[in-house]
């Protein structure tokens, strides 16, 4: 009987330590910016699902393309209808791992994230420099990188070519809490 209790305690302890290293959020923020001399376009998604496992050094993101909100409703409609085709490809996901030491005490730690970004049904390898910040009971992260629509087979018709940047800047900001 004692043994059982011991084993149970071990299992429970193992689960606890493993999950304490995983941080998740359902309201991470991702914005993208397209700057040209003719038009600035900006959209923000505040419903990004993200998870970081500090022990395994893995990172994952998942978000609905429809969650991106634009200043102009028409732009938002066109974004979903014509560019990223949200009906066919509702989600964008990222799955990867990071290198760089992140200690289990409060502080900021620069890391290098490598992984696969899937957008508009196309998967591309990406490398993203990021900063992870450990606080007591939470983990936040910020990153900025750029994406070429052409790499993800997002066609930009010639009439609006001058209004949409070739390189879109993406900014990521998340604050995760331990997975329970």
């Amino acid at each position: 009987m004692k043994k059982y209790i011991l084993l149970l305690a071990m299992v429970a302890g193992m689960l606890a330590t493993a999950s304490a290293q995983t941080y998740v959020t359902r309201n991470g923020q991702i914005s993208f910016y397209s700057k040209t001399s003719l038009e600035d376009i900006k959209a923000t998604n505040k419903q990004v699902f993200a998870a970081i496992d500090l022990s395994k050094k893995t990172v994952a993101f998942s978000l609905l393309m429809r969650g991106f909100l634009f200043d102009k409703q028409l732009m938002q409609d066109h974004f979903n209808e014509n560019y990223v085709e949200s009906d066919k490809f509702p989600k964008a996901t990222f799955n990867g791992s990071f290198t760089g030491a992140v200690e289990n005490k409060p502080g900021k730690y620069p890391v290098q994230i490598e992984g696969k970004l899937t957008l508009h049904g196309v998967t591309q390898p990406v490398t993203i420099p990021a900063v992870l910040e450990v606080q007591s009971g939470s983990l936040s992260g910020t990153a900025s990188f750029s994406v070429k629509p052409a790499d993800y087979k997002i066609e930009i018709p010639s009439v609006v070519k001058d209004k949409i940047a070739q390189q879109i800047t993406v900014q990521v900001s998340i604050a995760g809490t331990p997975l329970k």
């Binding site: 995983t22 359902r26 699902f49 998870a51 496992d53 893995t58 994952a60 989600k91 799955n95």
Partner: peptide, 13 residues
Amino acid sequence: QDSSLLKLLNDSM
């Protein structure tokens, strides 16, 4: 834990 960080997210999404 290993393979399914993304799966975990997608499931809850």
